[in-house]
Amino acid sequence: MSNFIVQNFAGSDGAKWFIGVVEDRNDPLQMGRLRVRIHGAHVDDKSLIPTSELPWAMPVMPLTGGGVSGVGSTVDVMIGACVVGFWLDWPDCQMPAIWGTFPQIEGTPGAPGTLHQQGNRINDVIQNGSVGGAGTIVPTGEGPQWLRIARGELAKGVAEWKGSSHNPEVLKYGKDLGFTTDDSEHPWCSAFVRWCLKNAGADVTGITGLAKSSLTAPGLEPITEPVLGCVAVYTRGGYSKSSIYGHVGFWLKREGGIDTIISGNTGDRVAVSTESVNKCCGYRWPRGFPKS
């Protein structure tokens, strides 16, 4: 059920804004809506989230428009444009609205208009006054056994079943934590990490159903820089790093201040997603295992 019918005035219900890149402007309803790949919500990989599955974003028109059908200006935003907007239905995140565009920022090599390139350019300009200084780490190789296990679950397409039935492939992750047939729609990112580590022979003592439990688990040691397959813990949404709310997964790479991870309970499935380095609470590595 959408949260579009808010309980209070705008902002008091926790309105969240975003940036994204326009991928489709052919609105079948001819209302000027745009499909936008949103930074932090959708990955760049279109094989995982194709353009056709992105939600339509409603444009916020200027007061010089008539506000009724057929009266006023049209939406001229082009594919590849970087836009800024907010969620009408936070935290469901299925009803985005956009109110403006960022100018094209030159200076980063590669194809223009991708989510990470546009987002990282803006981030660099705002924070550093320049382009290209946010840092990149792109490891090679297969990584440790638990990462290969996680990738296997990703390839299987493990996802929740909505309704009264529950996917046993999801429930297996939390079996040791007391998950029941009614729990597959509860947060399970930490259970996924725990299951992968355990099946690789790592010590999972202290890893509970809370994402941030990995930060204090005795079987995991802190590391200062991420390595392929390490456990990466982030704070959730607009919460502070000291809050109990978070997300956890296995680290894959960093590009321009954005970490890419494999995690459970990302869009109700095992998926590849992105997190800002600024939201990272720490990286951990299973004790007794060589770092790949």
Rank of each mutant, 00 (worst) to 15 (best):
Y245F: 10
F192E: 05
E153H: 15
K156T: 05
P226G: 01
L147V: 06
P91L: 00
M61A: 09
S130D: 08
L210F: 08
E185H: 15
G237K: 12
G267A: 11
P144E: 03
P55H: 01
I137D: 08
R33A: 11
G32M: 03
M58N: 09
I126R: 09
R284D: 07
L63W: 01
V233M: 01
I258W: 07
L115R: 12
G80M: 13
V272L: 12
A41Q: 14
L171F: 09
M95C: 12
S273V: 02
L115Y: 00
S2D: 08
D76K: 14
I126W: 03
D24K: 08
L154Q: 05
V270N: 02
C82R: 04
E142R: 12
A191M: 04
F18S: 02
P96R: 10
P286E: 01
R287V: 13
V170L: 02
H39P: 04
P168M: 06
A202L: 02
I98K: 04
V84C: 08
R33W: 04
G174T: 10
D89Y: 06
Q118H: 09
Q104G: 07
S276M: 09
D24N: 15
T181S: 13
G237N: 15
S73F: 02
P218I: 09
A191Y: 01
A200R: 09
N128L: 11
T216S: 14
H116N: 14
A232R: 00
A191C: 06
G66K: 11
P103K: 01
I105W: 01
Q30T: 14
G129I: 10
V36K: 08
Y283Q: 07
I38N: 06
E255D: 11
F9C: 04
